[in-house]
Design a protein around this nucleic acid. Structure first.
Length: 752
DNA sequence: AGGTTCGAGTTTTTT
DNA sequence: ACTCGAACCT
């Protein structure tokens, strides 16, 4: 212990004055405004170490909340090095969603929730929403499930329940959404399921409605630390604030310039108004950067200065100037990929920079394709940060659906997925008959599986198929009550007895998809999970298979994209700019730095959203330690269509003295003038410009089917130029101008 | 009952 | 270009 103390003292001696202030602060609210690369993680871990070793607070009374599970794991690792691994394991270091899932599991009875609840992912949510819309006779074309779900998600983040939402819904669309919301909620409850937002919402209800639970939790979590505070939403703010209670021992760290999740409900005001929420707050600014070269930091600073709605922060470093930031203009995405990979190869071969020190970022996942192809072609090891992709595979979703249906008997959505996969003679007609019977007799489909004989509309063959499956499910559920069966062997049993294993073993429809192998990977991940569980909690030997299964399913539901990234794998890392938050690499390339991609098309209409895109670019730029490459193309193939592109406005915003530009091939424009000109594109460009002139925003038009509408905007895309038009009758439609047969009624005053 | 073909929508970012 | 769902066929 004394050793640890002197270790701590030595570490504290190394800190700068502001870092030291943040580390040594103990009681009351603390806000750490940390610029990129300012040693924030070090400050947080040292602060935790100081709380435990210096002040004597029990590790289990500290609650640390990170943005991803991966970040939580890394923080636990680092805290474990300073305290002991044992103390680190006793400390809750987790994400908001995992914390909430566990609290609901623990206190669910207070909310009337069965602890076996399923956590619905986006696909499950869509299925549930389609059911809701269908039963309300709402067409999915006027009310796209994804859009309705997004609206509801926003409502939930603002803690609006269906009733409250309905009372504030003013126009037709929102009133219909309110109906869908109510129905969707009742379907989720009937399935004993929660979506991601419910995890937060239900936790708020738990804390607000049950004073004794709140008191117990306030005693448990006396010191709360929240990282990436700029990306918390209102529900998360309420949870943290309520848990902190009167003590207000809340330490928030973050950077408003790195707020990139507004679209997901993140509320930047949480961090901007911290001092209003907590008038006694101590505020510490960390502005010195230890990560990047002077050039990279100056480029980042020059870029972010273009945001108007922002408090300026001085970013500075004592690091070397380094190479200038390199902008590369390539003819197509093929050459772009080739250039980046060539460059990486050179750095690898000439300067012995390991592959694991290099990363490629992009705005949208689809851009990974070209880079991947090139890396694979050259035989360079790479990994893509898409932790969720594995669980989106058909065979994995099937296997997990079995586990969910077994674990949570009320889960009809997952049951329906597997009821006839692989085929076992339960046809869609049979399912319809079961559903109809359930609806008419005040019961549910899952319950009918036990005695389908009562469904008189079914023929004997169907009845026997259904009851056989019902019996099979029951048998599996019996196994989950045992303590002496491992997750791994249970999963193997289910895969075998369900027929899923042989179904996918025989499936060789697409030769490059080894579905059987992926199922094997799921089996080993189950084993790995159980091993970790045993390691983390010695008292687990008593726990039933069912409990361990719940924990495993929870983990699967809450994986994030970066969770799969392993820095020590010796491979180049590919990821979206969003996933790059919180990471750093010596060498970074950002591809597709073009108008329409970064900033994204869907963001350019609103100044606020363009600022978020700029912050996203800022996040990407500030991940780079030594070298930074920004690439764009002159034409890019999207949807199998090759169209001309324009360099991003963000490139022009970089201070010229920090960058050099390389132009490949036939590029004759000027990135800084914001134009790229070349043969093929000129005609399409001219035409698109003309279209935009024909239909300026505000133009009133008549459509043969939809009637009279108003043009919102036109996205130029050559022959496929589309206009978004708001019709009184059917809402907003996106139409291809060439085919839409629009009649212009009147145009607003033209500026030219 | 199960497989096949055709058309539509797709790509913003994710816990 | 690719994937997914719905109508359609055997």
């Amino acid at each position: 212990m004394t050793d640890r103390h002197s270790d701590l003292d030595a570490l504290l001696a190394d800190l700068t004055e502001p870092q030291r202030e943040a580390v040594l602060h103990v009681e009351g609210p603390l806000l750490v405004l940390a610029g990129p690369g300012s040693g924030k993680t070090r400050v947080i871990t040292l602060r935790i170490a100081h709380l435990v070793l210096g002040v004597g607070i029990a590790p289990w009374n500290v609650l640390a909340i990170t943005f991803t599970n991966k970040a939580a794991g890394e923080m636990r690792q680092r805290v474990g090095q300073m305290l002991s691994p044992r103390q680190a394991r006793a400390m809750p270091i987790t994400t908001f969603h995992s914390l909430c899932a566990r609290l609901i599991r623990e206190f669910g009875d207070r909310l009337g929730l069965d602890p076996r609840f399923s956590i619905y992912d986006t696909a499950d949510q869509q299925r549930a929403m389609k059911q809701a819309l269908e039963s309300l006779d709402m067409s999915t074309s006027n009310f796209p499930p994804a859009k309705v779900l997004a609206t509801i998600s926003n409502a939930k983040n603002e803690l609006l329940d269906p009733e409250t939402y309905a009372s504030v819904a003013s126009d037709f669309y929102h009133r219909k959404v309110a109906q869908a919301y109510r129905k969707y909620e009742s379907i989720l409850r009937q399935n004993n399921a929660l979506d991601f937002d419910d995890l937060l919402l239900m936790t708020v209800q738990l804390l607000r409605q049950h004073a004794d639970v709140l008191e117990q939790l306030q005693e448990r979590h006396q010191y709360i630390l929240i990282d990436e505070y700029q990306d918390t939403n209102h529900a998360q703010f309420v949870i943290a604030n309520t848990l902190a209670g009167k003590r207000q021992n809340i330490c928030a760290t973050g950077d408003p310039d790195q707020s990139i999740y507004r679209w997901r409900g993140a509320d930047i005001r949480n961090i901007l108004d911290f001092e209003t929420h907590y008038p006694d707050a101590k505020v510490v600014r960390l502005e010195q950067n230890y990560r990047s070269t002077k050039n990279i930091l100056a480029a980042a600073d020059g870029l972010i200065r273009h945001n108007v709605r922002r408090k300026h922060k001085a970013l500075w470093t004592e690091n070397e100037p380094g190479d200038p930031v390199t902008i590369v203009v390539c003819p197509t995405e093929r050459e772009e990929a080739r250039w980046v990979v060539d460059q990486f190869c050179q750095l690898h071969d000439m300067e012995r920079i390991p592959w694991s020190s290099m990363a490629v970022f992009y705005r949208v996942n689809s851009l990974s394709r070209a880079i991947e192809d090139e890396l694979r072609h050259r035989g360079i090891p790479y990994q893509i940060a898409r932790g969720t992709a594995f669980y989106e595979r058909k065979e994995i979703k099937d296997a997990v659906a079995y586990l969910r249906a077994i674990s949570n008997p009320a889960d009809e959505v997952n049951l329906l997925r597997i009821i006839n996969t692989p085929a076992r003679g339960i046809s869609s007609a049979t399912i319809k008959a079961l559903q109809a019977h359930a609806a008419a007799h005040h019961t549910t489909l899952p319950q009918l599986l036990d005695n389908p004989q009562q469904v008189t509309t079914l023929n004997p063959r169907a009845i026997s198929a259904v009851s056989r499956f019902g019996a099979q499910l029951e048998a599996w559920r019996k196994v989950t009550e045992r303590v002496d069966v491992t997750l791994r062997s249970f999963l193997e049993q289910v895969l075998r007895e369900s027929g899923l294993e042989s179904f996918y073993a025989a499936d060789d429809n697409d030769p490059d998809e080894d579905r059987a192998m992926n199922l094997g990977e799921l089996v080993s991940s189950a084993q790995q999970f159980e091993d970790e569980l045993e390691f983390a909690d010695m008292s687990q030997d008593e726990s039933t298979l069912g409990r361990r299964l719940q924990a495993f399913l929870e983990r699967i539901s809450l994986v994030s994209d970066v969770d799969s990234v392993d820095a020590d794998q010796g491979s180049v890392t590919l990821m979206t700019l969003h996933a790059a938050k919180g990471l750093e690499f010596p060498v970074v390339a950002i591809t597709g730095v073009e108008e329409g991609l970064l900033p994204h098309d869907r963001a350019v209409a609103e100044a606020e959203e363009v600022e978020e895109e700029r912050r996203l670019c800022f996040v990407g730029v500030t991940r780079a330690m030594q070298r930074l490459y920004l690439t764009c193309t002159q034409r890019r193939t999207v949807f199998g269509q090759t169209l001309p592109t324009t360099p991003s406005r963000f490139l022009r915003e970089l201070p010229r003295e920090t960058v050099v530009t390389q132009e490949l091939d036939d590029f004759v424009g000027d990135v800084f003038a914001g134009e790229s000109r070349f043969g093929v594109a000129a005609e399409q460009r001219r035409r698109a410009a003309e279209d935009a002139r024909m239909y300026p925003p505000g133009t009133r038009v008549r459509h043969p089917q939809f009637g009279i509408g108003r043009v919102l905007n036109v996205s130029p895309a050559g022959a496929h130029t589309r206009a978004r038009i708001e019709f009184g009758s059917v809402g907003i439609k996106t139409l291809v101008l060439q085919y839409a047969r629009l009649e212009v009624l009147d145009r607003p005053d033209l500026p030219f």
